[in-house]
């Protein structure tokens, strides 16, 4: 059974229809990527899933339960974490405070410590920067903090919105390696990317979105070969 099932959702921004019936599913243990050009509706899809954007019609099942249009602070308690586009770390909070906010719903201090150690295992740099203000770090470090902060929730499904945005190629590679590793550790991943080739390279399956609709879907390796991808981009 899929961990996440999005059925035919339609989302509007004011009068503008951003999603015109998107259906996506993610199986437990998969890396699934949503690719498409700017403004295609990738971020809106993630926002609709986490509850940041109001969905008009359709259904969203997470672990078999309807979560559509639930308050955001409730959906993320169910085991999904959403790392927003542009990292959105709390710039004047320290790295430690940022991580603690990720574990906001956890009251057990020891559990928080344990999770923090796991995060440091993935991102040793964060341990060195604990008392530094988040906003003073480099883009790559901020991305690591944003992912680390989401891991503090111990999510089953991790949704990443363009983690490679604005980063140097070498850092992008690092981030993708970490995503792969997180997946091997059992975290299901829904990855939104403009960086199509790299995303499809690590993904089990992928969807191509254009103008708020899924135009293509399939295995990662197949999609890479599919010439239509390029068409979708050029369009």
């Amino acid at each position: 059974m899929p961990i996440l099932e999005v059925n035919n959702i339609e989302t509007y921004y004011g009068g503008i229809q951003a999603l015109k019936g998107i259906s996506v599913y993610v199986n437990k243990g998969e890396i699934v990527t949503l690719i498409g050009s700017n403004g295609a509706g990738k971020s809106t899809t993630l926002k609709s899933i986490s509850g940041l954007a109001k969905v008009k019609t359709g259904s969203i099942l997470f672990k078999g339960k309807e979560t559509m249009n639930k308050p955001v602070h409730e959906t993320c308690l169910l085991g999904m974490a959403h790392v927003p586009e542009g990292r959105k770390i709390f710039s004047t909070l320290t790295v430690k405070e940022n991580l603690l906010m990720g574990a906001f719903s956890v009251n057990n201090k020891q559990l928080i410590e344990e999770r923090m150690e796991i995060v440091f295992g993935h991102f040793p740099i964060l341990k060195k920067r604990l008392e530094q203000k988040g906003g003073t770090m480099s883009g790559g470090e901020q991305q690591m903090l944003a992912i680390g902060r989401a891991l503090m929730m111990e999510p089953e499904l991790l949704m990443l919105d363009e983690p490679s945005m604005g980063l140097a190629p070498i850092i992008v590679e690092q981030i993708f390696d970490i995503i792969k590793k997180l997946n091997q550790n059992g975290i299901t991943i829904l990855l939104v990317e403009q960086n199509a080739y790299q995303a499809l390279n690590i993904a089990h399956r992928g969807y191509v979105i254009r103008n708020g609709e899924i135009v293509l879907s399939g295995k990662g390796s197949e999609l890479i070969e599919n010439i239509e991808i390029r068409d979708a981009y050029l369009a």
Binding site: S50, L52, P71, V72, H73, E74, C76, L77, A81, H82, P84, K88, F90, S91, T92, L93, E97, L100, M101, G102, F104, S105, R149, M153
Partner: peptide, 19 residues
């Protein structure tokens, strides 16, 4: 800390399960 987080960015704070 949650207050400071909400002051900085309401949407992201809600993603941290902050009401």
């Amino acid at each position: 800390t949650a207050m400071r987080a909400v002051a900085l960015d309401r949407e992201t704070a809600s993603l941290m399960s902050i009401n």
